[in-house]
Design a protein around this nucleic acid. Structure first.
Length: 423
DNA sequence: CCAGACGTTGTT
DNA sequence: GTCTGG
DNA sequence: CCAGACGTTGTT
DNA sequence: GTCTGG
């Protein structure tokens, strides 16, 4: 997933989705069509008394072991790869007891276009016909940090591979807990790690829909309701080629066609009963299949997650943008489902093969995690050595973060606090 | 023993 | 906090 | 994730 | 380019 979501849910909607009206730190939440890490949104967790409660938490995990005088970095751990969450030191300690449900209405993803431009898309659940918008619930982990302004609750969103339907747009997506049962399972205390991780699979239901949105929302400060509204995606072809040229060019085909994603409530409802539900069943199946399966918490390996994922994926009949990758029509029958799943699993195995260097199979994920390719530290102060100032006063080093963010701000409204390290 | 890291994404 | 590295 | 800044001197 | 801010 990326780093932007939407949550403008009202108090009642939150209560309904959460199954409780108990809400801690409610005042921290500001409904927003353009949520970025650092902002507080409603999250459901189990309170110390065992009851579930909503709590406003900031997006972007700030681990409890963060030093008090350290500046919290909401961007470092705003996502957690579900495939490795049980092994990563920063996350695995949270898995047993710090799971939570992240309430959203949808999320944003940027499609990279040729030329470097990026088109933002909004992804959400299609509302049932005539029904009310249903929140999109993501799997998360939370922690609390004892910072200079008191305890701060933060969360991270688990990610997984993209579903078949979405992989044209991006290769990762949030773990979506589509059913009440799945949500309950994720939230409830328990030590069946295998069961939990089996739930972390791409959601491929037909009721997950998308459309392009205005690039205005690229700016984190843009908060208008236009953020999530559908726009016509401008076609480069139409833009640059006069119609005569288009006709004259045999190579330019039907690519610029403006096709929209199915609209919430449009033709979706009957299909939802088929494929959306099927994906739902897959997730439920994951729960059932894992009951009784004992996965020792200590073991490094994760259970194969592909079967469930692909079962759902097999149901994909794509529409919209995606270059109609030659996808086979899905077989909706139970019998065909298994076949399709196997087929898909095979395909994935084949694709994984050439990628061996990434260390996907065999031994512990740790190997992959330790891959030097992606491991990069970027902590060093810019031009700490010499930069440009010849004999100067140290330039920005001296005035660093403090003065930089010392903008005057209307009292009372403090969206995101700034925390400075002591100098 | 102490010190230091602890992460994901995207890009090229 | 917990693990790895020196 | 994307946007926006990226600096010093001198004067009041 | 690179870092900071939301």
């Amino acid at each position: 997933m990326c780093g932007r979501s939407r949550c403008s849910l009202g108090e009642e909607q939150v209560a309904r989705a959460a199954g409780t009206s108990r809400w801690a730190d409610r005042q921290l939440y500001r409904p927003s069509h353009n949520v970025a890490p650092g902002a507080a949104t409603p999250v459901v967790r189990v309170a110390s008394d065992g009851e579930r409660q909503v709590q406003s938490m900031r997006w972007g995990l700030v681990p409890s072991f963060t030093k008090k005088d350290e500046k919290p970095d909401f961007w470092r751990m705003y996502n957690a790869r579900s495939e490795s969450v049980a092994e990563k030191p920063s996350f695995r300690r949270l898995v047993p007891t710090r799971r939570c449900l992240v309430l959203t209405q949808g999320f944003y993803e940027w499609q990279k276009e040729k030329g470097g431009a990026k088109q933002p898309y909004y992804i959400q659940l299609a509302s049932p016909e005539g029904g009310e918008e249903e929140p999109l619930v993501m799997a998360g982990l939370w922690d609390v940090w004892d910072g200079p302004e008191g305890p701060m609750h933060t969360y991270t969103i688990l990610t997984c591979d993209s579903s078949k339907r979405l992989e044209w747009l991006h290769d990762r997506m949030p773990v979506i807990l589509r059913t009440r049962e799945a949500q309950e399972t994720w939230l409830q205390p328990g030590d069946n790690l295998g069961k939990l991780l089996h739930m972390c699979v791409p959601y491929n239901g037909e009721d997950l829909v998308w459309h392009p949105v205005t690039k205005q929302m690229n700016s984190p400060s843009f908060q208008g309701p236009e953020c999530c509204k559908e726009v016509k995606k401008p076609s480069a072809k139409d833009f640059f080629k006069p119609r005569s040229a288009v006709a004259a060019s045999p190579k330019v085909k039907e690519q610029g066609k403006l096709e929209f994603n199915q609209e919430p409530g449009k033709a979706g409802s009957s299909q939802r009963d088929q494929q959306g539900q099927q994906a739902q069943q897959a997730q439920q199946a994951a729960i059932k299949d894992e009951q009784g399966v004992k996965t020792e918490a200590g073991s490094a390996g994760l259970p194969a997650q592909t079967d469930v994922q692909q079962t759902a994926a097999a149901a994909a009949v794509n529409a919209d943008e995606p270059p109609a990758d030659r996808q086979q029509a899905a077989v909706a029958t139970t019998a065909g489902r298994q076949a399709a799943a196997n087929q898909a699993a095979e395909k994935q195995a084949a694709e994984a093969a050439p990628k061996q260097q990434e260390g996907q199979q065999g031994e512990p994920q740790a190997a992959a995690g330790a891959s030097p390719a992606s491991g990069q530290k970027r902590k060093q102060p810019a031009g700490s050595s010499a930069s440009k100032g010849s004999g100067g006063s140290g330039g920005k080093k001296g005035s660093a973060p403090g003065s930089a963010s010392k903008k005057a701000r209307p009292a009372g409204q403090r969206p995101i606090s700034h925390f400075f390290s002591k100098g």
